[in-house]
Amino acid sequence: MILSWRTLRKVLIAAASAAYVVLGFVAAISDDPPLIALIVGVVPMFAIALATAWNSRARVPLVLLCLALGVAFVLNLEFMRTHVAWLYFVQHAGTMLSLGIMFGATLGSDESALCSRIACFALNSRPDEKYLHYTWKVTLAWTIFFFVSALLSVLLFFFAPLVAWSTFAILLTPILLGIMFVGEYLIRCRAIPDRPHFGIAETIQAYNNFSRR
């Protein structure tokens, strides 16, 4: 049976994600990690930063900055390889903190909350007040999740064995994110059962479309 391109793409993404997690965990707890672990840890982060810079209003200076950092990274490969745990720590804690700030900064009102705006975009209409208040609370829940994750990342990295931090940041974080998505969906179905609902994949797609507009 020949796999469709969509199925094959999902398989490849799943395989790449698994490889990233395994290599990241091994690299973070190793005193002499393989070079491939360092490359796998940096390339996705660099690609995201470069894409963000390219789509920003200050495209030229930000792209030049990304390229300069890329050159500096290549010129200091050996140093970075022996400090790869710090790379993964900055990536994890920085991402969690940035997301916490991004979600938290929108909590001024029900309608301005990030999850409310994404819901409006996904539904292509403005939900009623009850729905908007619920999505405000979802935004608050995600804000707390990201800030707590960032705090735990810092505490575990500096005050616990490295394997404990690596287990939390690299192995458990994807699982916890999945639990948050599934848990929110189940709660939404019970809290506002008579409203339109969309699944995890649709939520992620709506966020991607919202962020690119």
Rank of each mutant, 00 (worst) to 15 (best):
S211M: 11
A49L: 12
E202T: 14
H133L: 14
E129V: 02
N76A: 10
M180D: 07
A206T: 08
D194C: 13
F121T: 12
V71D: 06
S153A: 08
L156Y: 06
W54A: 06
C189G: 07
A122V: 09
A150T: 10
H83K: 11
S153P: 08
L75N: 05
I36H: 11
A105H: 11
A113T: 00
D32Q: 13
A15R: 11
L35Q: 11
A119S: 13
H92Y: 08
P161V: 11
F79R: 14
L140V: 14
R188M: 14
V84W: 12
A27K: 01
V63W: 04
L176G: 01
L3Q: 09
L38N: 03
L155N: 04
V138M: 02
R126K: 15
A122P: 00
F146A: 06
V84H: 02
T143V: 05
R190E: 05
A18Y: 08
L62A: 09
S98Y: 00
A58E: 07
I200W: 03
C189D: 08
F158P: 09
C66R: 04
S211L: 12
G41F: 04
F168A: 08
K10H: 15
A160H: 07
G199D: 08
H133R: 01
I118N: 02
N55L: 02
A141Q: 02
R59Y: 04
R212W: 10
A105K: 12
R213H: 15
N124W: 10
A72C: 05
N55H: 05
A122Q: 11
L50K: 01
L8I: 09
W165L: 02
L97P: 09
T82G: 15
A206G: 08
W165C: 03
F121N: 15
G24T: 11
F46V: 00
T7Y: 11
E184D: 04
D110L: 09
P127L: 03
S211Q: 13
M96H: 03
P161R: 01
L155P: 05
F103W: 01
F158G: 09
S4I: 09
S109Q: 07
F46T: 08
H83W: 07
P193S: 00
Y131V: 03
F181C: 12
R126Y: 15
G104Q: 02
G178Y: 01
E202D: 15
S4R: 07
L151C: 08
F198W: 10
I36C: 13
T95L: 15
M1P: 00
